[in-house]
Design a protein around this nucleic acid. Structure first.
Lengths: 202, 202
DNA sequence: CCTAAGCTGGACCGTCCAGTCCAATGAGTG
DNA sequence: CACTCATTGGACTGGACGGTCCAGCTTAGG
């Protein structure tokens, strides 16, 4: 699977991925062409196929990985410190701000949708990326438990899954309609309910 | 905007929409071609452009409308009777069963995504369809209030928005990964939290 | 150096596909 | 019957786009 890449090769490959990711964000997965990517990265077609022999699908998968890493990276300082309700609020603000700024531009969701439907192998990778994302949310919930701010019997698995689903759904609706109201509502409701579970115990 | 259509014309138009909707469900929005639709509906290309002069986009929008009507129609007997927790459970089962059976086939979500990004006019229609869907959920919550099973101060707007978002997110993840776990988790969590709000009041 | 490898440019190909055009047919109306 | 307009079939077009090929250049390393 792995090819020999010199430092220069790696640099080019990364340049292509980063540039292509931008193009995808601007244009949307379903509309991006290799020519767009070429124009935006100043790479020739042979370069594209040199670094991504399986063609467009392979490139898109690489972009999806890059974007997923980016998302986790961005949220890491917040996600790693979810040990107070105030921290949750800050994280919520970050998520909403991020996606509102991106507007109806194409983030991870559409990429996942597109890539996940391509091949079983790609789907497995998408599953793994979502799992990581969800796990980082789960860690946040567990640290609330550790801080004594949430009871031990919270179903961490289900809460984190529901939270991730709310984000994905909210973003999907944001893309389809251009409105972030649903993303806000779903996130706020999820967090409020989580918070309420702290006091609803006997 | 409206053209003159004889009864025969209407029949043909409807046949095209219904058949094309099937094709979209099987093939996925982004992969459907007009030739597919032609083969599946036994219509000629001139018929397609006769009934949908603006071409593929207009056809897809009509399909989205058709599918949205279908979804609301399917759920109407359940949504109209959400006046007990048992009814909510039955509705939940229906939703999950429906989407699990469709599997990773392309339902409304992707259509909305695709159509909504096409033109502002189409986007407005998508917004309206989502609003209707959400409203029917809101009606369910209100009937629970009317039955005295939910307190009056429930934020119906936000609850229904969050519920709709959970469904959309769950379906998006189902399509990307082939797994319905997130849909289940999000729906169950949403309903459980709603239910809990009934007893968490002072 | 030299030579084998990675790297790059860009012309080229084959296919797919939305959309156009026109001629032929059918049905409603005077 | 004649006239009109909706309806239908299907060949054709023009362009977009993924992917191939090869020839020329760099770079690593002996």
């Amino acid at each position: 699977m792995e090819k020999k890449l010199t430092a220069k090769g790696m640099a080019t490959r990364n340049r292509i991925i980063a540039g292509a990711a931008e193009v995808v964000r601007e244009t949307g997965v379903s509309l991006v062409t290799l020519d767009d990517v070429m124009a935006h990265t100043r790479a020739s077609k042979s370069q594209l196929f040199h670094y991504f022999p399986k063609g467009k699908d392979e490139l898109l998968l690489a972009i999806a990985q890059h974007e997923a890493d980016q998302v986790l990276e961005d949220q890491k300082p917040y996600l790693g410190q979810l040990d107070s309700w105030d921290a949750w609020r800050k994280w919520r603000d970050l998520v909403i701000e991020r996606y509102e700024k991106q507007g109806d531009r194409c983030p991870l969701g559409s990429l996942f949708l597109h890539v996940g439907r391509a091949t079983p192998g790609a789907r497995a990778i998408v599953v793994e990326m979502l799992r990581q994302w969800q796990e980082s949310l789960a860690v946040g919930i567990r640290s609330m438990q550790a801080a004594g701010l949430l009871p031990e019997d919270v179903d961490v698995e289900r809460r984190s899954a529901a939270l991730l689903t709310s984000i994905q759904g909210g973003v999907a609706i944001l893309q389809a309609t251009g409105q972030s109201a649903h993303l806000r509502a779903a996130l706020d409701q999820s967090i409020e309910d989580l918070r309420r579970s702290a006091v609803a115990q006997p």
